[in-house]
Structure formats: structure tokens, C-alpha cells
Design a binder for these strands. Structure first.
Lengths: 200, 200
DNA sequence: TTGACAAGTGACCTTTCGTTCACTATAATC
DNA sequence: GATTATAGTGAACGAAAGGTCACTTGTCAA
């Protein structure tokens, strides 16, 4: 059919790898899901492993474009409530964007056997959100919205629980609503703890 | 050899599944690591899948014995410093006990394709630690060591970041020392935030 | 119209997988 | 000492895996 078969293969691979892992996926099923036979795959990739490597290339590039540069830092909220709503918007996006969900899943599954997956997993699951929120909290302290403290320590204390609940959504999607509510409750509790306003 | 071959097979399976996953492990390698040929395995298990199921049985039972009953709850610390040291002792154990590390890894890898692994993963990674610390924090509030607050909310805010750093140790063992230091720093920061003493 | 090339097919290859089975060695039971 | 059960072996099996290749089809440029 069209010339985008290569990208459709990558998309199908992301889908299947995120469910059954690299080893648990075979190229026949993969191509069949696109209405092709397996030999067709070799017109676009030289091996199954090359699919995996190109997929990782894509994930790494996507992460860099999306979160790697300082211009993608979220703006400093003007109020405590704005932090909550900004957080919920970000969480909503990352939980409902299928490609991002599948990326997290595949990194979760493959992190112990692939070096690049391992490194990207740490960014996705730990340092990425923390480094994104560190300047946000620093800015909020400047504005007098948050008690003076170590911004990085606060960012870690804020993002790690949220990340844990995002993982819960990936693992048990039926708990998504409850998890979102818990994230919002946590965000408000966090503000009640570290905020300087006294109207909470 | 001995009659404990069945358990040695389970141990080898845990080891290999935790590295390459269920699908990425073959019974030949598995038995060879014990000095056996693959057909010997079938004297002890009727299939590769049965190994997986018995392994899960064991993990579930072990978790129940270890963390399931209220008598295994940690004692309420007598001081803020005692909370830190208790935390560090627990973390040290869970990070350096190979069986527990491998269990976490295998649950991480298989959580998306196996229902029982999924359920156990949520306990290991989210609710287990939180439910263990909830009564601890309630007790510390009783004793006047912590500011009055929702104990479960505090337990979640405390354990989720620690859990994230335990995951980091599983993923990148060379960062264990740094992660341990960060956990201790986080614990002290937590106390500085929620503790009622003013000597910090 | 022809030539070239990219995309897709189906048959086939080799390897590896999980599994079975007849057999042997050993140790305990009667 | 004969029997029986258990644990382990090695050869073999069918299925499924990843991969190759000669061939067809469709598209576009010359």
C-alpha cells in the first residue's frame, strides 16, 4: 500500500512489545495485524532486532524533543490552585496518550536487558518529571507561593508519588479515575504542607 | 542429586525470568545452569508455564507471610531519628535481598500480561509500603512526634518516593549508594516538614 | 513503451523452542 | 535379593521462530 508501512510497523511493534515484550512478540503476528505477511517486514527492516533499535531511537528522539529542551518547561503557576490544575493537565495527557502509555510500558518491560531502555526508563520514571518541576518550584518560591526550601528536594517529593500513580494507571487502567482523584488530593495536600497562603 | 532440585529449578527460574522475562527464558539454559539437561525439568514440572505458576504461588505466599499479617508491622518509632534508621534498615534489606530484588524485577516485567503478577505488583510497588507505614505514622502522631494529619496520606507521600528510589536501585545497581543517601536525605527532609520537634 | 525500482508475496530454510519417551542409575521398600 | 519409585539422560518430535529468495505487482521517470 502506502509508503508509511515502515511507520505502521513501528507502531504495531510498540503496541505488541508494550503488551508481551520484545521476546514475547513474533514478527508474523506483528505483520498480520497490518494485513501483511512476515516476509514483507524485511523490505523495511533487516531484522526484528532492528525494529527494536529504531523504536528506541524514536522514543529517545521523541523524549528529547518533548522534554529535553528548556523551552518546554511548564510556566511557573500564579497560584497554588494553578499548580494543581497544571499538574492535572499534564497527568491527564500522559495517561491518555496511547503512544506515551505504550512507551512507558515497553520501557518498564525491557529496562533490565537493554541499556538504552534502562537509561530512558530512569528519565521517564524518575528524573524527567523532577527536573521539570524543580524550576517550577524555584519560581513559586520566588513568587512567595511556596515556603523557601530546596526546590529539587520538593520536586522529587512532589513528582515521585504522582509517578507512582501514573504507573498504577498503566498497570490497572480501570483504576484510572481513582488514581487521578488521588493525584489531585495529593497535590492539594502538598500545597497545604508547603504553601505559604493560609486559606487552605 | 538431592531432592531439592525442584526448588533449585524455581530459584534458577526466578533468576532468569527477572533478567530476560518469561518469554525470553528457555528451559535448556535454565536447566543447564543447574548442570541438568532440559528433559530433567519435566520430572519436576509438567511444563514451563507450571514453573511460572508455582513461582507466582511462592511469591504470593511469601508476600503474605512477610507483609500480610498485622504482627509484622514495624514498631512505632520513639523519635524522628528512629524513623530514619528504621526506614534505612528496611530499605537496606529490601535492596540487598537478592530474592526480593528478583521478585520485584519479574513482577515489573510480567505485570502487563499476567493478572496475578499485576495484582502483586501493585502491592509490592504501591499499597504494601503505604499500608505498613500508615499505622506507624498514626502512632507517631499519637506520641506527638508528627504533626496531626491524615496518616494514610502521609504514608503515601513518604513511601512513594522511597519506592521510586528502590526501583532505581533495581534498574541501575551502580547507583545504589547514591540512592540510599537520597532516601536518607528525603527521610530527614520529611521529618523536618512534618515533625513537631524544632531541633532540626 | 520501456526500464528501473520499491513493496508485497509465498515457498522454503535453518534454528530453536517446548515437550515426549524409552531407558538407566540409584536408593529405598518388601 | 527382587521390586518399586524417583531422578536423570539422550534421542527424537512437531511446532513455531526468525530469516532468505525468486517472483509478481504497481508506479513513475525517461
Amino acid at each position: 500500500m502506502a509508503k508509511d508501512t515502515k511507520e505502521r510497523i513501528l507502531a504495531a511493534a510498540l503496541d505488541m512489545f508494550s503488551q508481551n515484550g520484545y521476546a514475547g512478540t513474533n514478527v508474523r503476528e506483528l505483520t498480520a495485524s497490518l494485513g501483511l505477511v512476515k516476509s514483507s517486514m524485511y523490505k523495511h527492516f533487516e531484522s526484528k532486532e532492528e525494529i527494536w533499535n529504531r523504536l528506541l531511537d524514536e522514543m529517545i528522539a521523541y523524549y528529547g524533543e518533548r522534554f529535553g529542551s528548556p523551552e518546554h518547561l511548564p510556566p511557573v503557576p500564579d497560584s497554588a490552585e494553578a499548580l494543581v490544575s497544571m499538574t492535572m493537565r499534564m497527568v491527564d495527557l500522559t495517561i491518555h496518550d496511547e503512544k506515551i502509555v505504550k512507551t512507558r510500558k515497553v520501557l518498564t518491560i525491557e529496562q533490565f536487558r537493554d541499556e538504552r531502555a534502562r537509561a530512558l526508563a530512569t528519565k521517564h520514571f524518575l528524573t524527567g518529571l523532577r527536573d521539570m518541576f524543580t524550576p517550577v518550584f524555584a519560581g513559586m518560591m520566588e513568587k512567595g507561593l511556596l515556603r523557601r526550601d530546596d526546590p529539587a528536594a520538593l520536586a522529587f517529593a512532589y513528582t515521585a508519588p504522582i509517578s507512582a500513580l501514573i504507573h498504577l494507571c498503566d498497570r490497572e487502567p480501570e483504576k484510572t479515575d481513582a488514581a487521578m482523584a488521588q493525584i489531585e488530593a495529593f497535590s492539594r495536600h502538598f500545597i497545604k504542607t508547603y504553601g505559604v497562603t493560609d486559606n487552605g
